[in-house]
Design a binder for these strands. Structure first.
Lengths: 336, 336
DNA sequence: GTGAAAGCGCTAACAC
DNA sequence: GTGTTAGCGCTTTCAC
């Protein structure tokens, strides 16, 4: 142990050993096109022999490129973000970048503070399910590269999973089962998705002649699901659409606690198709999506984002298809 | 947008504005004890007015301290790591550090490569459930600060959740229910915990006169749980202890698929008490632990680790208590 | 294609 | 206490 106490070799060590200038070594390592292939190979060989490794800090200082991107999620304990995190991690690694993960814990303040703190030590930010206001996000985007997940904002690249078709599918599924009324147990007011989902549900319900009410807001957690379940049961509706699976699973449990049955007394639908949604009983009907792909694409468009494209306002807004996963928590509407 | 195109102010800007030397500004900002309180306040005021923010990259270069720590987990989609990640994140933030999260995907190669890649751009590594060999970890520890989670190695700080008392509790619980035989569905060979858990189970079983067999190894995933269930059912044992909850939940499902019942035909126990273990049916009996605390303490001991203490070999090895969570997946042994 | 030299923004001796 | 002066290890003009 501690045998390797001498410092790591630098490009100067490599340069001396290779009898070249440091700048040439630098080029050979990071700008291979600008040196002859002979020198490049020589440099690579010497670097390898000396066990040279780039000091990413040092190279980031003059260049400004840190090869690091940050991903912020609103709640790291929500399995919904699993796929997103993994996808982002893969894409970041594929692009030679390191991913920093941050948890904003549902707070716009924590979100803003943590982003500011990272400041110039990352190349950009992917923000999933941001709770910040449009204005704050725009201000942020004025200073850093930003890509959004589960949120759209003019001029910024974003990746979302479709909710228009998705909510329509949910409503039609419920209508087919004979339901004539649904309640939406809304998520946090600051979550962009909350309004989007409600809008989609309300519109689709209107079209099929189903009544729809919005209740809440609730925190998007299992715990809050208990409260949501009580409210839903009290509403008289036969179907409840929860803002996410965490809430929906909490509802499932609460309904059972109260001696009622899902789906006989109440059908329950969630969003996200998280880990756990198929092990509850009954298993949860939910709107899933390709979330690894979401994470991957978000990092991709962040890194591909050139300064120019921001000004041009031609940031790509990607919408990936969702799919309804029908399981045991939805069934025929009870006869009243 | 793009209105803030001028560069961020540096300490030189602050120094000029405050009519002081850059070094004084530097001290006022990061070494407050070494300047007069008047200058400090002056500097702070000017910095604030100019909107100065430290460039953490630039300060890391000469000082060598990056105020960043990396946490590597063996599988980021395993909810077991939730608590650990969140605890680590909190502690890192409390210490003014940024946390980088890495997923090693059960591979010692990915693990080693990713750690090497981060190299000197972090102050240290917390490695949870490392799949590397003792030798590789020691080599790593010769070059970087390392703290281990769910693994012990002489001379390195580590945090684990007790498995000796824990496995004893499991066995005694099963014995109390009349079980006379158990099988352990082992986790990956490279996971340190696999042997530790087996040793604990075997020893405790011997003491209560229960027969115990080790089967596997299996991947610690839900998918592998199906396989594990078949093997367990074929073994003739009345109780199965899975390497973790993911496997155990997979077993639960597979047993049901085969038309058998848990716990009537087979009792199932897991480890970790993950999200999901209480929503399966039956809910899972499992050995839980204070995993947020584990994450917190690991970061804590990493950051508190002075170069000296490594040589002195007095790294602290923390063992946190586990607790058995008894739920519906364990019951009376079937009468044979 | 390669070398010399000037930084990137900060810290840390070392003077005073 | 505060200022001066070298760097930290790399990139990047600018010459040749």
């Amino acid at each position: 142990m501690a045998r390797d106490e001498r410092k790591r070799p630098t490009i100067y060590d490599v340069a001396r050993e290779a009898e070249l200038a440091p700048s040439t070594v630098s080029r050979a390592l990071s700008n291979p096109g600008r040196v002859s292939s002979r020198t490049r190979e020589h440099v690579l060989a010497v670097a390898d022999r000396l066990g040279y490794q780039v000091n990413s800090l040092a190279s980031a200082l003059p260049s400004g490129r840190t090869h690091t991107v940050a991903l912020f999620v609103s709640d790291i304990t929500n399995p919904h973000f699993f796929g997103i995190i993994r996808g982002a991690e893969h894409q970041a690694r594929a692009a030679g970048c390191t991913l920093i993960l941050g948890d904003t814990e549902e707070s716009p303040e924590v979100e803003a503070r943590n982003i500011e703190r990272l400041g110039s030590s990352v190349d950009g930010f992917v923000v999933a399910a941001s709770r910040m206001t449009d204005e704050d996000i725009e201000a942020l985007a004025g200073k850093h590269r930003v890509a959004l997940i589960s949120r759209q904002l003019a001029g910024l690249p974003s990746v979302i999973v479709d909710h228009v078709d998705g909510t329509r599918e949910i409503v039609e599924h419920l209508a087919a089962l004979g339901h004539e009324s649904l309640v939406y147990l809304a998520g946090p007011r600051r979550a962009w998705l909350t309004d989007q989902r409600w809008r989609g549900l309300a519109q689709a319900a209107r079209r099929v002649g189903m009544s729809a009410r919005r209740l809440g807001p609730f925190q998007p957690t299992m715990r809050a699901g208990a409260n949501a379940a009580d409210v839903a049961l009290g509403s008289g509706a036969t179907a409840a659409v929860a803002h996410n699976d965490l809430m929906a699973i909490g509802m499932l449990r609460r309904v059972a606690e109260r001696g009622m049955r899902v789906p006989d007394d109440l059908s329950v639908v969630g969003f996200d198709d998280i880990f756990g949604s198929d092990i509850s009983s009954p298993a949860l009907t939910t709107l899933g999506g390709p979330f690894e792909e979401v994470g991957r694409l978000a990092v991709d468009s962040l890194l591909g984002m050139r300064e120019k494209s921001r000004e041009a306002g031609r940031a790509e807004q990607i919408v990936l298809p969702s799919h309804l996963v029908i399981r045991g928590s939805t069934g025929k509407a009870p006869v009243r």
